[in-house]
């Protein structure tokens, strides 16, 4: 009997090890093509998660604000918890999870994702949800995000989802099996190249401009969580020229912010004050800002955070200064690398 139990345990161990190795091999590494899948997990590697400002949202946050610039200009210790097409319920659960590590003074939420009442894309779900550490927040985020063709068990055992990648494995899949690749600077995804905004496609008329119940529900939950935790919630709309941000949408957010006494900044309306020039400050014709644009946004918004929200200057904190100094080296190195890459 004892021998049998030992054998069973050995078999289970071997299976666990093999499944773990296969999972690590087959999961997308988000290194060379789509790097956004790496953004969420980088937060956990932060040695000090004592951030005063945390941004939540989709590409309109992680490409449009430079935390490094905010640190350099105002000593604001901030982080962006955003990923591609991150839905509002995912932002909510990331905020909830963030609070389990540390309570920020300000939570900045980009309201672009209010337009979605259901998850639109399974691959985007995976990019946000897979890198999250297991917690009640992750479980709830998965349950809120799953599309009809998804199964919860695929999140518990990602190999069930990604096993079909066996035929498209690259050298990087082996290289990054047991290590990760850092792609962001405190959640900011840097691009320094320039592609001026040209003709922006005309906005399509919608049959209904109302945001959905689920989207509102999670905005309410986010607001209530911030109230409970003593966090100031700031709503923003990043200055992306496309996809179109409708006036009807803006009015709904403005009313909501007024109703609950929240700050709401639509950067599309203050882009001249920020100093944005869409001939030089975007790398994809107006969808997202490049480094130049993101740093201008950081200067403008950092001033707001400092003056209106009372976010402290932490440059007196030597431990933090040391961390940011290391980050600055990497930040500047990437700028140099991209200069070479884009021949600038």
């Amino acid at each position: 009997m004892k021998k049998r139990i030992v054998r069973i345990i050995i078999c289970i161990l071997v299976i666990v090890l093999l499944v773990d190795a296969a999972t690590r091999l087959l999961m997308p590494k988000y290194v060379s093509d789509v790097v956004e899948g790496n953004l969420i997990c980088e937060y956990y590697q932060e040695p000090n998660k004592d951030f005063d400002v945390v941004f939540f949202g989709d590409c309109e946050v992680y490409e449009n604000f430079s935390p490094m610039k905010m640190w350099q200009e105002y000593g604001i210790n901030s982080y962006i918890r955003g990923s591609a097409e991150q839905y509002i319920w995912q932002s909510y659960y990331l905020l909830e999870e963030t609070c389990s590590y540390h309570r920020p003074k300000v939570a900045v939420f980009n309201i672009q994702s209010l337009q979605f009442n259901e998850s639109q894309s399974e691959p985007y779900n995976r990019m946000t949800l897979d890198p999250m550490r297991w917690s009640a927040s992750k479980v709830n985020s998965i349950l809120a995000s799953m599309k009809e063709n998804e199964n919860f068990i695929d999140y518990i055992f990602p190999i069930l989802r990604f096993h079909s990648r066996w035929s498209e494995l690259k050298a990087e899949d082996v290289e990054y099996m047991y290590k990760s690749h850092t792609v962001s600077h405190n959640g900011y995804y840097m691009r320094i190249d320039v592609r001026p905004a040209g003709d922006i496609p005309a906005a399509k008329k919608l049959t209904d401009y109302s945001f959905g119940d689920k989207a509102w529900k999670y905005l309410d939950m986010m607001r209530e969580l911030c109230e409970r935790e003593g966090i100031k919630l700031v709503l923003v709309k990043a200055p992306s020229l496309f996809p179109h941000w409708y006036d009807e949408w803006d009015e709904q957010v403005t009313s909501y912010a007024e109703k609950y006494g929240l700050d709401y900044i639509n950067f599309l309306k203050v882009k001249d004050e920020v100093g944005l020039d869409f001939n030089t400050d975007t790398y994809d014709a107006g969808l997202h800002l490049n480094l130049s644009g993101a740093e201008k946004m950081a200067v403008y918004f950092g001033r707001y955070l400092k003056e209106k929200c009372g976010v402290p200057d932490r440059r007196e904190d030597s431990a933090l200064t040391g961390i940011w100094a290391q980050k600055e080296v990497l930040y500047n190195r990437e700028i140099e690398e991209q200069r070479i890459k884009y021949n600038l």
Partner: peptide
């Protein structure tokens, strides 16, 4: 022997797990 049997079972399990046509995309 048990080791050989286990090898067959675990091998078969891993082959199905990785190479089976199931889940998203199928």
């Amino acid at each position: 022997p048990f080791a050989a049997r286990s090898l067959v079972w675990i091998g078969l399990f891993m082959v199905i797990l990785i190479l089976g046509a199931y889940g998203i995309g199928y």
